[in-house]
Amino acid sequence: MIYAQLAVNGLVQGLVVGLGALALTLVFGIARFPNAATGDTMTFGAYAALTVHKASGSLVLGSIAAVGGAAVLALVAYLAVFKRLAGRSVVSLLVASIGIGFMIRAGLGIAFGHQQQVFNVPLSRPIRIAGLAINPLDLQLAVVAAVALAAVFAILYLTPIGRQMRAVADNRDLARVSGIRPERVMTAMWLIAGGVCAIGGMMLGIKTVVAPEVGWDMLLPIFAATILGGIGSPVGAVVAGLVLGVAQEVSTPFVGFTYKIALSFVVLLAVLLVRPRGLFGRIEGVR
């Protein structure tokens, strides 16, 4: 029973990891580099939501502000930096993304200070379903995440721009010769990735605390989920995020609070060495 309860608790954490991994996998699949600024973009989303929530008292307004702000931030980072580095080695892009992450974190640290802040959400009594205690807040967060995921998957699989994005992810040159404009695809992709990060960051902030380094600390689980899910696979990223979130919580009684984070590293290594294409990834020649 205790494990079932832990698994339920892990689901929300898993959604946070899954959202981050979704953003990372979109960038990895389409722009072809691991974006280390993903975590800090989440932090940005958390602060944007927190600020608007404090001012207006509405989480809905908060999430809209977070999505909008982080989407613009991601697009600016693309236009100002990543676009100029197109055609350079993966290392250049990776190092630049770390630089951008640092700049975001520095900006947030200067603007909001280093004290941990919390969302003032009303406490509520857990609902009991089949003997499991479920926090209504968790349920709300799960709904928010589900809506965000539904929106992203609808864009990816039901709209022309989504189809173009998947085409570019599949084969960039083929996409280009069939008349897909990379510029538009990239713009859409960065906006979506930023928005997804913001939702994840906001959920993380509501569940735990908001501080300048919370997003960066999520980077390892996010990378692990992205690779476990298979790079470039949006479904895989979300599923792997959930698996990892649940696994972290369920493992806590055995390994303790600190080492549950190391679980991501173990998963990351195991997947890379045993099955580098992950659960849902396509077979790639290189790894």
């Binding site: 930096v81 100029r84 580095l85 350079r88 250049s92 190092v95 630049a96 770390i98 630089g99 951008i100 992450g101 640092f102 700049m103 975001i104 974190r105 520095a106 900006g107 640290g109 200067i110 200070g113 280093h114 300048p212």
Partner: peptide
């Protein structure tokens, strides 16, 4: 001191980006 720490991280980030773009 904490603001300075933030500023330091920010400058590291900025230099990493600028050097990658302009002076690899």
């Amino acid at each position: 001191e904490v603001e300075m720490a933030s500023l330091r991280i920010g400058v590291v980030g900025l230099l990493l980006v600028l050097f990658t773009i302009y002076r690899p």
